[in-house]
Simulated assay, not measured.
Amino acid sequence: MRGELGMFKIALAKGRISEEFASRYNTLRGKEVIDEASRRLVFDDIEAGLSFILVKPVDLPVYVSAGAADAGIIGKDVLLEEGGAAPEVMDLDMCRCRMVLAGPASGRGAIRSVATKYPKVAAEYLQRENIPAQILKLSGSLELAPVVGLSDCIIDLVDTGRTLVQNGLVEYDELFKVSTRAIVSPVSLRMRTEEMNRFYKLCEEIRGMQ
């Protein structure tokens, strides 16, 4: 995908998404291009004209919207929380999970406070459900908040739900389903049409690898 503007840069959300994408891409290419075990943040596939950059998920929309990356691979949860000017172009149907409201298994009582990593998502949900609760933004270990009395409930991503059960919590409501999405730079969308078409094809191939 190397064009007059150089290597086509794809930002990958570090963590589960970058690991799954790297595994599929390396299999597709028949060689290790992206080495998740290394401490490097940039991996070039010279033959394909691609440069992959590993980025913190919350920062990725900024990289793509500003044109520092031509495209990005990121979770729908981050897109809904962080927004940005980069349009979503494809669902890769990868790393599926759910955003849920959860709380003590003893039963759902009055919800006065909710702990979450996603204050925007939480605010929209609480307003929609007419729940006048305080939102507490935390960066990790959300399951601990109801256990120690910091909050009545949490809003967070769940996969199997095992962590909730281990901490005495249950799901109260599902807000929406989450999967991995492809986003593109508005500038690159106009300037790199040929490379974009190849990127779409790559995403389709990655999506088809289950």
Rank of each mutant, 00 (worst) to 15 (best):
L54Q: 10
L54I: 15
V55C: 05
V55W: 00
K56R: 13
D59G: 01
L60R: 03
L60D: 00
V62F: 04
V62N: 00
V62E: 03
Y63M: 14
S65Y: 00
S65W: 06
A66M: 08
G67V: 06
A68P: 04
A68H: 14
A69F: 00
D70Y: 08
D70W: 09
G72K: 03
G72V: 03
G72C: 11
I73L: 07
I74D: 01
I74W: 01
I74N: 01
G75R: 00
K76L: 10
K76V: 02
K76Y: 05
V78Q: 01
L79F: 01
L80M: 15
E81N: 07
E81H: 07
E82H: 09
G83E: 01
G83L: 07
G84Q: 03
G84A: 11
A86P: 00
P87N: 14
E88H: 08
E88F: 03
E88D: 09
V89T: 10
V89N: 02
V89S: 05
L92H: 00
M94K: 03
C95G: 02
C95M: 08
C97K: 11
C97N: 13
C97I: 03
R98T: 06
M99R: 02
V100D: 00
L101F: 08
L101D: 02
A102I: 03
P104Y: 06
G107R: 07
R108L: 12
G109T: 05
A110H: 12
I111C: 07
R112S: 12
R112K: 14
S113K: 06
S113M: 08
V114Y: 02
A115L: 04
T116F: 08
T116D: 09
T116G: 10
K117D: 02
K117Y: 07
K117E: 14
K117M: 14
K117N: 09
Y118V: 02
Y118N: 06
Y118Q: 04
P119I: 10
K120T: 09
A123E: 14
A123F: 05
Y125V: 06
L126G: 10
Q127F: 05
R128Y: 13
E129N: 10
N130Q: 15
N130G: 08
I131L: 01
I131V: 09
P132V: 14
P132D: 12
Q134K: 15
L136V: 13
L136N: 10
K137M: 13
K137Y: 11
L138I: 13
L138A: 12
G140L: 15
G140C: 10
G140N: 15
S141D: 12
